[in-house]
Design a protein around this nucleic acid. Structure first.
Lengths: 337, 337
DNA sequence: CTGAAAGCGCTTACAG
DNA sequence: CTGAAAGCGCTTACAG
């Protein structure tokens, strides 16, 4: 039992601890004979350097770890962000501590506190709370912080976003261009900034054509597949139902598709979703979406952290990643009349 | 700049470092007046305890971190495992360091080394390599290690698996029960243990009915959607093509579905897949699968770690999580004749 | 109830 | 080329 320490290695190799340290860190200027003795002792004892101890004393106390606070590591969008960040971090010999907030502001704050306490070298946050002033101390202490997916409030830091409003406008523009005038909006919680922006983009696209949306066709605060499904059923029970739907979030899109199937309307009602999802092309009809690029977002967010750590300086800014309309059929259905 | 330390807080509050430590750790026996002074100083300085320093000295040096080595944090199966582990870890106040191996044995070993060097309290590994003898030192040092998804070799540790052979037998049994005799097998790399087990289950199911599979119908070493797609095209170019397919892995299933669509045979060829995937029920026909339960696997793996950390002892064992056949249509298509 | 001393495993800053 | 001393930020084990 009991892991071998650097001292144990030094004793066995009959050298000083400092010499072992030099060998472990591949510093030059140690005789081949001592290197060999130390290497043999390391091998024999199964010695593994204690990285938490070395980071404690090492210059600037870097831990070679960054903290990543995501909506939910199990959802496809978050997990791709995570993986993209891992790839960049790995190139820098850095590991990732990740956690899920589930849209809970208290959890976001708790995770940041935990990661900061673990002395992470940088922090990437997909925020759920409405204010991140609690990060001020970390930022002043010099820890690079980057926001992804949603903008920060109360602090000025680099932020990687898509243009939600423009993306939504393009999505809705697609069904408008195919002859629709009565277009339903189905969106996430209005507490979520991106949801508000997407609703705004929906209104923009309609305003472009001088269309005034029927208030009954605008449904907010849908956060689950089931809620979206029920909302679609209610829309099509109206006297004047929409002929097209804009579903402003992943799960909402899937819930809406289920409902259209149940109603037998999947080939007659047009649908454009925000966010791509696996197998969207294999459904019938294929689902037209405005896609985000989480790979690009994750890679960019992580590289901003490493550029700051390397000493680069620039004014914190918003970095926008473009969205892309992918037409697969559902958005190109024309209205019946 | 420069983060405040416990010493700084002690100085400002005019108490000893030990008293600050007591307050931070909520140890009893400090006057209310001193607690108040310390709390105020902590607030004023924005002090955050350095967890890496405290874990260094603390009894048994626990870091409240576990390391999780997964196939790929971005794939749905791995990311659900990850999330399930996070939920359990969170109940214990423990964070997760996660990394992806991408089926690369060297990367698996590197990640384990990195996490061990960071003094994780436990290690959960979904292995890619063929031998994990390199873990012996960690295990002897008392670090709990649990394998998931695939069994270890060269070490004896708790392992959370599904019964791949029985699951495959049930999957193939489903198409046999619907009248098929010529059933194709499409599977992952034969270097992967679970792939070999699933092939064995396929053979079992056929043997149950006295069927000898046509060797031309058995295709191994498919690791991507594209490879699976091509393989299906080749199968249906044979003089005697199969009437049903067993696709022994997620991506293989999806590749096969694409190919059947291209061939216009998705409603005439039966298909059962191993592993469930999102939207399998929304495809036409719905895809019949044998589903694993990654939530249960992840939760169990993590709880085994925490039971060991709590001091429980038992002989390392294999813990099997049952699979479940989900009939959705594709597996219940009957042969033409 | 409180604090001074020693030490966790390592690296820094020196001296030889 | 090598090592003895001090210290990273905290907690342990004592003493008062």
């Amino acid at each position: 039992m009991g892991r071998a320490t650097l001292r144990d290695v030094a004793r066995l190799a009959a050298v000083s601890p400092k010499t072992v340290s030099r060998v472990v860190n591949r510093e030059p200027g140690v005789t081949d004979a001592k290197v060999a003795a130390v290497t043999a002792a390391i091998e024999k004892l199964g010695y593994r350097p204690n990285l938490t101890a070395s980071s404690l004393r090492r210059a600037r106390g870097r831990t070679a770890t960054i903290g990543v606070v995501l909506e939910n590591v199990a959802n496809p969008f978050s997990s791709v962000l995570h993986r993209a960040m891992e790839d960049v971090a790995r190139d820098h010999g850095v590991s990732i501590l990740a956690g899920s907030v589930d849209e809970d502001p208290a959890r976001e704050r708790a995770l940041v506190g935990i990661f900061a306490g673990r002395q992470v070298d940088g922090l990437i946050v997909a925020p759920a709370s409405s204010n991140q002033g609690y990060l001020t101390a970390e930022i002043l202490a010099g820890t690079p912080v980057v926001f992804v997916d949603r903008p920060p409030a109360g602090v000025q830091v680099d932020t990687v976003l898509i243009d939600n409003r423009a993306g939504a406008r393009e999505a809705v523009g697609q069904v408008v261009a195919h002859g629709h005038r009565a277009i339903g909006y189905l969106g996430d919680l209005r507490s979520v900034v991106t949801a508000r922006d997407r609703l705004q983009g929906y209104r923009d696209a309609l305003a472009d054509e001088g269309i005034r949306p029927d208030p009954a066709h605008v449904v907010e605060d849908l956060h689950t597949e089931e809620a979206a499904e029920r909302a679609v059923h209610r829309l099509f029970a109206l006297d004047a139902p929409p002929t097209a739907l804009f579903t402003a979030q992943n799960l909402v899109t899937i819930g809406a598709i289920r409902a259209l199937r149940t109603l037998g309307r999947q080939h007659s009602v047009a649908l454009v979703g925000f966010d791509d999802f696996p197998l969207a092309d294999l459904l019938e009809p294929g689902v037209t979406v405005v896609a985000q690029d989480p790979w690009a977002m994750g890679r960019l967010a992580a590289s901003l952290i490493f550029r700051r750590l390397a000493g680069e300086y620039w004014e914190p800014a918003i970095h926008e990643i473009p969205t892309r309309l992918i037409a697969r059929g559902s958005g190109e259905i024309r209205p019946a009349n």
